[in-house]
Every structure is written in structure tokens, then in C-alpha cells.
Design a protein around this nucleic acid. Sequence first.
RNA 1: GUGGCCGUAGCUCAGUUGGUUAGAGCGCCAGGUUGUGGCCCUGGAGGUCGGGGGUUCAAGUCCCCUCGGUCACCCCA
Length: 439
Amino acid sequence: MSDDVTVARAPSGTHDVLAPESARWELLVARFARQVERAGYGLAHTPIFEDARVFRRGMGEGSDVVGKEMYEFEDRGGRLLALRPEGTAPVVRAFVQHRPPTPWKAWYVTPAFRYERPQAGRYRQHHQLGVEVLGSADPDLDVEVIGLAARLLASVGLGDVVLHLHSMGDDACRPVYVEDLRRYLADRRSSLCGEHAERFEANPLRTLDCKKEACRAATVDAPHLLDALCEPCAAHFARVRTGLAAVGVAAVLDHRLVRGFDYYTRTTFEFVSGALDGAQNGIGGGGRYDGLVEMLGGPPTPGIGFGVGIERLLLACDAEAVFPTVAHPLDAYVVDVTGGEAARDLTEELRRAGLAADRAFDGRSMRSQLKSADRSGASVAVIVGADELEHGQVTLRPLRSGGDQRTVARAEAAAAVRALLVGGEADRRPTTHRPKDEA
RNA sequence: GUGGCCGUAGCUCAGUUGGUUAGAGCGCCAGGUUGUGGCCCUGGAGGUCGGGGGUUCAAGUCCCCUCGGUCACCCCA
């Protein structure tokens, strides 16, 4: 590629979202907003970049995301900043800074940045919807949060999704379990895959998560963290499971579910799509992080949340042929083959009357303008020719039905267009509904 | 970061053992129709064949490098 062409292209791993696809994003966000606002969550906007330590401390220096995937940079004042690689840490930082009354419930929609090699369902800038709740350790809150995520997926029509559920324990029981696991793996070191034969000392939990057959086989009889939970963690997890069952959210226990960030404690979960054939089939996940607030300098405060990847959710929708792209049809399209003044003024009038209206420019032929009107999806063409101009009239031509066109006084144009829409004579297209109707 | 595959028009693609002015469909523009969209017909615009170098009388085609895309590993949404 020559230089000029390369510049006129979104950076590797990023992508543009244009109409009509962008309308689907709008609709998804509006639907999510309605669901979580109804549950008492408030929208939180936080900066797209933070002091890099916000992420380093929370997600863990050892995590891949912090270690090799963060977009870090120094600003002109010498501060080390990072584009957010995920949504939780910034919200927790905001909590520590502002100390709102607890339990504090927040939701967000945000881009997230990670420097990885792009592939299907994986981007350097992707987008997440999510919620966080700070200040309550009540297991029924775990149920609420997981339920909100499940409901979002169900509401767009996804059916081929499995909720994986696990508990990471807490500071009392997890270290004991990790030591047990390390001992178990040490005896089988030679049968692990090359990578984990080396790394199991540092983080034996990762070995459980390995997809390679060698590690799979070697860990079949490994001790389960769920069997090693301390009494409080076990009680918490039991309450979460009965709660999910009570609200009708199906989950499968997955003792291999080890999420990538260090801050997780107790409940962790992940929604996996069966419709995505790529390796990137996790469309959302989250869990408790009862120590994260402290790590960022706040008082001991429990927390829980989830994030759902918008791109992956929509890929899954495409794979399941649900939640189709919506159109934003026009009500009227103004065709003016006189001097153009009529189009200029009439279009404005129609819009002020609350109609969705567009028009042709550049003084093109009537044939050409009607072609544009047709392609725009408009219900009615509002035509101004020499005759109409002379008599102060407009001709309304239905474009979506067999109805006859008619000529009315120009002053009645907006009302007449509206009558055609309401009467259903002109407007009967099957695939159109608008985000604003949903919100 | 590692590996496989692929780069020809806005899009999807064809292009023979290397051989003349690189094609098709769709889309776009215009005309057929000086006041009427869709269907049909005709015409047109649009290409540094990703870029650079090499082999050759001759390269879209073969070789090398490079850039980009894509898929997978890793990790994650």
C-alpha cells in the first residue's frame, strides 16, 4: 500500500461504525439503559484515560493486559497515563474519589483499548456495556448483577449462550487451595504443556484454564476450588446459586473458569456463545472484587460488576440471525425541479412539523430526484414543479404503496403528508422501527 | 510477540503454459421518458493490478523484500 492510501484507513484493530449499523448500537445501548435504570443504576462517565497505576494496581502487574497490552503514554506534564483497557477500574477509582452513599450502582458504555493482534471478535478498540455495584457483599446482589447481564443477552434474542459460574474464594481460602493445586501439579509437571510446565509455579490457576489437551488431561483429577472454599465463601456461593435458580437464570458450574484480572474474589462468571465459531466466543463476564477499592486507596468496600462486549454481542446476534440492523426511514423526500427555493423552505417546514424529511440538491432532473427519493426509503415524495409553484401547491406521491398521487395546497403539505402516514396508505414497510420507539 | 492464508474498479470476483488497448456482475452517473422512482434497454465515469526491486523480448501472472488484510496461537469483551 502506498502511504496516501494507508493513512486513509482506520488504525489496525479499530473500525468505523456507520449507519445503518450504528443505529443498532444506539438501540442496544438504549435498551440496556432502560433495563439498568429501572434497577436503580445511574450512568457513570469517567475519563477515557487514567493514571496508569489505576490499572496496574487493580488488574495486576502480572496480567497480560497490564504487562503487554496497555496503551500507555506520558503526557506533556510527565504523567504516566493509560487508555482504559477495561471498564471496572475507572468506576472504582471514581468511587474512591467521590465516596457516594452505598450501595452505589453505576452503569457505563465505553470504548476499551488493548494492544493485541486483531482477529475475529478481537479489536484494539472495542466497546463494553457494564454495571458496577460498590459497597455491598450481599450475595443477592450477585444474583441481580448476573441477572441484568443475562437479561440483556436475552432481550436481543440470543439463545445459544451458556452462563459459566465459579467462585474464586477469598484471602482466607484461596491461598490454601493454590498451594494444594501447586503440589498436585508439581507431581505431574512432565505431562503439562510446555508453557505451563514452566509457569505453574507462578500462577497454577492458569493451568486449569489451558485449552491444550495435555493440561486438560493432567488436571482432570485436580482438586476443585469450589471444594476448598471457606465456610463464608461457600455460604455466599450457595446463596448465589439458589438465587439464580429462583430468578430463572440457568448456570453451569465451571471449576476451570479463571478470569484474567487479579482483583476477582468469590463469584466469577462468563457468558459464552455457542454460535461463534471463532476462539473469541466469550461475550461478557465479570465477578466480585471485594479487595479492589482498597487496592486503589479506598476503605474496605466490596464490589461486583460485569462487562459485555458490544462487538461480540452483535457478532453473536448475526450468527444467530437475531437483532437485525434497523433502518431510519424518512417520511418525506422533497423533489423540486424549479429554482430550489421551494425545496429549501418546504423541507425545513416539514422538519419543524416533526416529520423526517430530506431533499435532493444540485438541481438534478425530476427522474434523478425521484430515484433518490425512492432509494432514501421515504414514504412520500413531495413534488414541486412549475405548475405547483405557480398555483401554490405541492404534489404528494406515495412511494411505498399503490396509492394515487394528489395535489394539495402548499400550506397543507405537512398535514397531508402526515395523513398519508397515519392512514397507512403510504407507509407499510416491514423492516422499520426506530430506536426512539424502544427507549 | 509467533505462525498459516490472501491483496485486480466503491463491493463481490474472473483473468489460460507469462503475450496486444485488464474484464464481468452489482453499485454509481446520464440518456431512452423537456413533469414522475422501482422493471427494462443504451451509454458513461471509475484501476499507479497494495508498494518497491528483480527475472524476461514481454509480468496482474514467476522470484525477493515490504506494507496491509485475514485467520489461528497467546490473552480477553
